[in-house]
Design a protein around this nucleic acid. Structure first.
Length: 469
RNA sequence: GGCGGGGUAGCCAAGUGGUAAGGCUGCGGUCUGCAAAACCGCUAUUCGCGGGUUCGAUUCCCGCCCCCGCCUCCA
């Protein structure tokens, strides 16, 4: 089956055809580092991770760029309030971002360009100059440079907005006196006192780049004038990505992006999770409740990226239990097939490609996981009936290795905490002494800590369950 | 008001013009010292509501209701 994605530009599922035979250019909008990214932000990055890994599973070499926005109104304000230099202020959130991304097993991008990097500022200035010379931008009385949206006929095509019908939500303050059209957006923001020493020289005076131009500059600088896929959250469709198209195509005259993919919001209590609403959780908030990064990864990944996902602690428990099912299955399967000769050349033939086929269909993760869990039930049944031979088990283990490159759901086999280890040891001794009263008491104590003792033919097994610290 | 996404069991969630995947939870059974895990069984005659097309619709068409998002610096 061919790869297909829903393209925001056409509002249709389209067959994916990369420009190059075996390579894909992927640009993903990264965080604005004015505070720690929340798990709603990470939902988008996890969707992009799934996308990248699946493209790779299909044999495509992915060149991924993720920008870091380290200068804007909020970062400047934050640095000013903290009374520290902008660089120092943003660095802590950059560090936190990479730390969290690693916990969620997100594959690093090839480049993380920063908006404050002089070479990209130079590129932005060059693009703005070019837009002015083409009549697509102008400097207003407030010294800022704005994009003249009425001169770019395709403006509004991505968001499917009619410019004359735009209605202000009042969310953003407009300086309407300076602009030719309310919709004109800033390419270069003239310096003012609140900016302190945050400024760059330009032909239009001191100032700093507008938000949108940074992505146009960095994307074209690192990936070229045209790129295959550009991703982000749905809230980036307008105005951010619409502006990127206007800027990039205004300069190059070429189609900027072939496929626009956007991820729906993470909700909490049925509302969008957003810093501005204060209803958000960060990765450390979730791990502080006793959940791991891979459990959060599962919880954020298991719902199709274009469907809004309501974040709940019940959902986290479901993730934990579901992963436990996978863990138990793998352990059991390894008991049967680990030492068998791997039928490497026949894995695909033996196990099929249902999992990958499902993901080909606009990343249908629910269907893909459906196949995984059906497989688990069927192979467990075969093992119960002692009908799963070594070689078949080994084949399924290879299949798992393959799909786990995309899912990255496997347990990293963390060590047991010392108190748990002690209780488990004591319980083992009690059981050997056939002191079941005591062993049951110890099991209750383990349960209270969020761990479960289970007796198998291979001895006692300790498993983490919901609420473990 | 304009433009999107969505409404499928207790919860989460696939899916198809031909009679509802999967996960979590709950209950019963096998197994077990007892449990757990695993497996088996049960849990939507029904897919927001009302019409229409059709031999047949949850799926296509029309109308309506509800939820969420975007509408110029939010992933």
């Amino acid at each position: 089956m061919a790869l297909r994605f829903f393209n925001t530009y056409s509002r249709r599922v389209e067959e994916f055809k990369p420009r190059k035979t075996n390579a894909v250019d992927l640009y993903t909008c990264g965080p604005t580092v004015y505070s720690r990214a929340h798990i709603g932000n990470f939902r988008a990055y996890i969707f992009e991770d799934l996308l990248q890994r699946h493209l790779e599973a299909r044999g495509l070499k992915v060149h991924r760029v993720m920008n870091i926005t380290d200068v804007d109104d909020k970062t400047i304000r934050g640095a000013r309030e903290a009374k520290i230099p902008l660089q120092k202020f943003t660095q802590q959130f950059k560090d936190a971002f990479f730390e969290d991304a690693e916990k969620l097993r997100i594959k690093p991008a090839n480049e993380y360009p920063a908006a404050t990097d002089q070479k990209y500022v130079d590129k932005m200035i060059a693009m703005i100059g070019d837009l002015i010379s083409k009549g697509l931008a102008y400097q207003a009385d407030d010294k800022s440079v704005y994009y003249r949206i009425k001169s770019f006929p395709n403006y509004g095509k991505l968001a499917h907005f009619n410019l004359d019908e735009l209605q202000s939500t009042g969310r953003v303050k407009h300086d309407e006196y300076d602009k030719e059209h309310v919709g004109d957006f800033a390419l270069w923001k003239a310096w003012d006192q609140d900016d302190g020493d945050v400024k760059w020289d330009s032909p239009w005076g001191p100032g700093r780049p507008g938000w949108h131009i940074e992505c146009s500059a960095m994307a074209t600088a690192l990936l070229g004038d045209q790129i295959d896929i550009h991703c982000g959250g749905v809230d980036n469709i307008f105005p951010h990505h619409e502006a990127e198209i206007a800027q990039s195509e205004g300069v190059t005259g070429k189609k900027f992006v072939n496929y626009w993919l956007h991820c729906a919001h993470l909700l909490v209590d049925g509302q969008k999770m957003a810093k501005s609403l204060g209803n958000f959780y960060t990765v450390p908030d979730v791990t502080a409740k006793g959940f791991t990064g891979r459990e959060l990864r599962y919880a954020l990944m298991r719902v199709h990226y274009r469907t809004q996902l309501n974040f709940t602690w019940d959902g986290m428990n479901e993730a934990l239990e579901s992963l436990g099912r996978i863990d138990d299955w793998l352990e059991r399967l390894r008991g049967v097939g680990e030492n068998a000769e791997r039928p490497t050349s026949n894995v695909e033939r033996q196990t099929g490609s249902d999992f990958e086929d499902a993901l080909d269909d606009d990343l249908n993760i629910s269907a893909a996981l459906g196949f995984l869990f059906e497989t688990i039930r069927e192979t467990n049944r075969a093992m119960d009936e002692k009908k799963l031979d070594e070689k078949t088990a080994a084949g399924w283990l290879d299949w798992w290795e393959r799909i786990n490159q995309t899912l990255r759901f496997e347990s990293d086999g963390a060590e047991l905490p010392d108190d748990v280890k002690k209780l488990a040891e004591a319980r083992l001794q009690a059981r050997l002494a056939k002191d079941f009263r005591k062993s049951d008491e110890l099991r209750d104590q383990l349960n209270a800590l969020g761990w479960e003792a289970r007796d198998t033919k291979d001895g006692q097994k300790i498993t983490r369950r919901a609420g473990a610290k």
